[in-house]
């Protein structure tokens, strides 16, 4: 069995909404194995985005522990978590989350800047990856000059810039039409199959989730199902 790149043990996440405590996650344990493609599904409010945030060390669990490559994050300070996000995990968001006043290339260069890569090298890497995702002729365009599908490609290019082992995607097709959505999914599947990236994706659409090898279903902050996808041949 492959080793767990992300491991969650009995994770609880509680939010204080004024006087009311909301249990977004109530005791979730989960392993993401190296090279896997896992979809997290569930109705809205089930805690799937919260789980993604905790697993990708964007936020810390209220209790329980998360291990990244076997290292517990509770012993790390915020700067070390930032380093993990910057080197090991690439993020793709539903709303793209590109910086609008920067060009496609500059957006892709940004995570490399955080890792101290020299400017010349950053430019080369960014241009190559943008070509790889099919945006070779759009590198100097600003996000506002690109279509939704193209923006998500820029976001995927940005996620790939530091060549991370894990790609985390939160509803990557949620803001796209079905044609663009399918193209983005093909790209993500390729990353898994051809480039060996471990992928963790949140979605609420069955047919999108079916691109994964394994689907984890969440309800009321708990895992209610964890099953392999039967491939339709």
């Amino acid at each position: 069995m492959a080793e767990a790149v992300i491991k969650a043990v009995n994770v609880v996440k509680t939010y204080n909404m004024g006087l009311v405590q909301v249990h977004a996650l109530s005791g979730v344990s989960f392993d993401l194995l190296k090279g896997e493609f896992v979809s997290i599904m569930g109705p809205s409010g089930s805690g799937k985005t919260t789980l993604l945030d905790v697993l990708s060390v964007l936020s810390r669990p209220t209790s329980g522990e998360v291990f990244i490559n076997k290292k517990p994050i509770s012993k790390m300070d915020d700067n070390e978590l930032a380093k993990i996000r910057g080197q090991t995990i690439g993020f793709v968001f539903q709303t793209f989350n590109l910086i609008n006043r920067l060009s496609a290339k500059e957006n892709v260069m940004m995570p490399l800047w955080f890792q101290g890569v020299p400017k010349g090298e950053r430019e080369k890497i960014a241009e190559k990856i943008l070509k790889d995702v099919g945006l070779g002729d759009r590198i100097n365009h600003k996000p506002s000059e690109l279509s939704g599908g193209q923006r998500q490609r820029v976001a995927i290019a940005r996620a790939l810039a530091v060549n991370p082992d894990i790609i985390v995607a939160d509803e990557p097709t949620g803001n796209l039409d079905s044609v663009s959505g399918d193209q983005i999914m093909d790209l993500i599947v390729d990353l898994n199959k051809k480039h060996g990236k471990t992928i963790l994706m949140v979605t609420h659409e069955e047919d999108i989730a079916a691109n994964a090898e394994r689907i984890v279903r969440l309800k009321d902050g708990k895992i209610i199902a964890d099953e392999k996808v039967k491939k339709k041949k």
Binding site: L58, A82, R85, G86, Q87, M110
Partner: peptide
């Protein structure tokens, strides 16, 4: 704020 969130998500440290 959002930009700061993006930067932190993609690896910017608090110090940076």
């Amino acid at each position: 704020t959002r930009e700061i969130g993006i930067m932190k998500a993609i690896g910017a440290s608090s110090n940076l």
